[in-house]
Write a protein that binds this DNA or RNA. Structure first.
Length: 109
DNA sequence: ACGCTGACTCCAC
DNA sequence: GGTGGAGCCAGCG
């Protein structure tokens, strides 16, 4: 558990995002001990899209914008999923992000 | 083994 | 205050 690949660490954190909450790439990156690897988090998401236990739709950029919605099926699946969890999205961006923002308290080393 | 790319983020203008 | 450019790390061709 203490040792895991970069991708695995990302998955572990993303899987812990509670229902109706979202987090940012940077927060995840920092939680896994790589605050400068936020891009890698998104990269890991792309690979995780085959895994249904990874709620990638709950991961947005630090601006709250659905940058990855284009990588989901259809054209607005990501937004649809988030709205289903009670999250309000306007212009591909989450309104009151801090209201839904969930910061990982764990630290995988 | 080298270089490009990317679901980001920060700094500067 | 918004837009643009450079930095960063890890996977892939």
């Amino acid at each position: 558990m203490s040792e895991a690949n970069f991708f695995d660490k990302v998955y572990q954190v993303v899987r812990q995002i509670p229902f109706g909450k979202v987090t940012t790439y940077g927060a995840i990156a920092k939680a896994i001990g790589a605050p400068r690897s936020a891009r890698m988090v998104g990269y890991a998401m792309n690979a995780s899209h085959v895994d249904n236990s990874i709620p990638a739709h709950r991961v947005v950029n630090r601006n709250g914008m659905l940058t990855g919605k284009h990588h989901f099926e259809g054209s607005n699946l990501m937004q649809q999923l988030l709205e289903s969890e009670g999250i309000v999205i306007v212009n591909n961006k989450i309104e009151n992000l801090q209201n839904y923002l969930w910061l990982p308290s764990i630290e995988i080393d």
